[in-house]
Amino acid sequence: MLGRRQKQEKWMLLAPAMFVLALITMVPLANTLWLSFTDTRITAIAAPVHFIGLENYIYALTDPDFQAALYRTLYFTIVSVGLEGVLGIAVAVLLNQPFRGRLVLRALIILPWAVPTIVNAVAWRLIYQPDYGALNSLLYQLGLISDYRSWIGDPSTAMNMVILADVWKNFPLVAYVALAALQTVPDDLLKAAAIEGASPWKRFRSITLPWIAGPLLVVMVLRTIEAFRVFDIIYVMTSGGPADSTKTASFFIYQEYFNYLRSGSGASYAVLVAGISAVLILVYYSAAKRQAAGGTA
């Protein structure tokens, strides 16, 4: 039970943090919400602002370009996070096996995580470069392609190439979480199952995977939230192109704001995206809470 002084202190200690966050997040959020009901534009001279109700939203929800951007974001998110999950688990299982150099490899995979997002984007852009890029050269020398290709200049491959770059940077986080979880799987359980005659795959499916499912789910939801707001890597690698094939929601809104200067309409897109993120965040908390409460799946 807190004394009166302690109750006062509770809020005094929190005050600076609440002030900073209110200023940088809550006030802008409220402001964005307000803008979304107006026809505000970014102009050099102050123009009259009109409250236009749900007009922006009605437009946004029927805008095929925005729907396409949302769809691309969804594709990027699902494929990226899915691959990170599969690769992360595989890497964790590998790094949980005893072999020489295991510790070095465990240390090595932190490097992609440490590489700044922008450097990652730039590096892969160089690798994908159509005329002199490493990927073209490697595949050509291996005899897998006969002609150099424009990997991120071709709408049919661009998004997947961006995804590959994103997966390379982000699989380590999933792998580390999976590895930490793997190390808590009781050895006796696996031995008992082996004695009962369960195959390695069966043991993995029915013991290991359920055991690590909880933490894995949490980190993958977290990655989903992050992937859903993807911007940096798109900006540097493709600028949303070619032919809008990599234009995701964040990039779409960015253009609506800063290229077309329609802040009112842009804000309505932003609020819709924030709404989707809010749902994902709630999913994250319930998953994390269940995990903290000790549930395994």
């Binding site: 959020l29 402001n31 964005t32 707001r229 924030a274 993120s277 809010a278």
Partner: peptide
Amino acid sequence: MPPITYIL
């Protein structure tokens, strides 16, 4: 939240 929500 996506920073795009706060940026403008």
